[in-house]
Design a protein around this nucleic acid. Sequence first.
DNA 1: CCGTCTATCAGACCAAGGTCCCAGTTGGCT
DNA 2: AGCCAACTGGGACCTTGGTCTGATAGACGG
Lengths: 204, 204
Amino acid sequence: MRRNLATALEMEGFGVLTAENDVVGVATAKAELPDLIVCDVMMPELDGYGVIKELRADKATATTPFIFLTAKGEKPDIRAGMNLGADDYLTKPVVKADLLAAIRARFEREAARERELDSRIEEARRFAPNFDSPAPLEQKLGLTPREAEVLLWVAQGKSNGEIAVICGAAEKTVKHHLTQIFQKLGVEGRNAATLQALEVLSTQ
Amino acid sequence: MRRNLATALEMEGFGVLTAENDVVGVATAKAELPDLIVCDVMMPELDGYGVIKELRADKATATTPFIFLTAKGEKPDIRAGMNLGADDYLTKPVVKADLLAAIRARFEREAARERELDSRIEEARRFAPNFDSPAPLEQKLGLTPREAEVLLWVAQGKSNGEIAVICGAAEKTVKHHLTQIFQKLGVEGRNAATLQALEVLSTQ
DNA sequence: CCGTCTATCAGACCAAGGTCCCAGTTGGCT
DNA sequence: AGCCAACTGGGACCTTGGTCTGATAGACGG
């Protein structure tokens, strides 16, 4: 049965790993991190429910698509399997076409999620430091409020003169704050300070 | 039936929206973007299969957990529903406990995915400009190879003298490249140029 | 009341950044 | 052969950045 299934899937172009029982299956799943898991319910030690519980509890396999394929086709069996976080539940007898369709459907579903995830990551990784408030600089870099304010403008490429105008202080004062900042950050020059500030303002 | 179900869910603390048929259901789902959808199969115009096809085709609802709850409980019906990307399929008669458990299981599954996604976003949003290659600067900012190289080091906080050593050129030459760079980027000073460079190097 | 922290500012001084003008070399394209 | 773009450098010159020393003033807690 298992061999039949494996060869059928391989003929469709899938890479297949098999395991002879529940315990071995959990181990190989955690080791190989497959893209999808097909699993029976009736097995000696953990049984299928135990397998999915184990896999769902492990961060690495918690979101792996998981399909039950079993002769235990009573409603309570199905509900138990699905409620443990299975993604589909096929009851024997199963024709090859159904299994393939189910697998493809789960892959398609996973692909849709992946697309959404990609766009959200794309969004997140955009270079967008938040120049709204000097508070993060004050806290994360241990600066005084005024120093944080000055650094906020330095990080935006302002010159000391401009910052003096913006903050309503003399350029000398700005310079003084800057030396304090450089010392606290352990850097030389406004460039290195800017890099640190951007790091803080980007990760938030 | 629908009212029964809605009040039952509301009593469990869920916010519930209802729709009297397939077409209205699709419209409200697209408008309100619910966290989960429960849907019958037998409906006048689209039927349940049409509903899920529509929703899966729309980027905004493509990954919303979707549960069929219907009297059409024959195996081919179930397979059809699941293969269209449903996440669970409950056949009437359904006891309240089963529905609640199914909903909670889907939410839990979604939460697990969300946790994984959060960690991946956290990874991605880290401030990590890629200083490996000047090529992006050359292309996206319209610089010559040498100019891009100089800017790459400027963006890392190097002084003109240091860059001269690194690039094996006279400081005068570095300065000359910099004036070219400033002109091309339309900025004054290395700070503003650094900001533009980091933007390019961060978004990749 | 006194010390500490924060913010303010000044003068002197040097290093670094940046501009302007100019000029030689290489390499590819026509 | 001639041209153009890129890379290279020099000299003169000014601006900005940054340090050092030193000083005043309000706020705040012990």
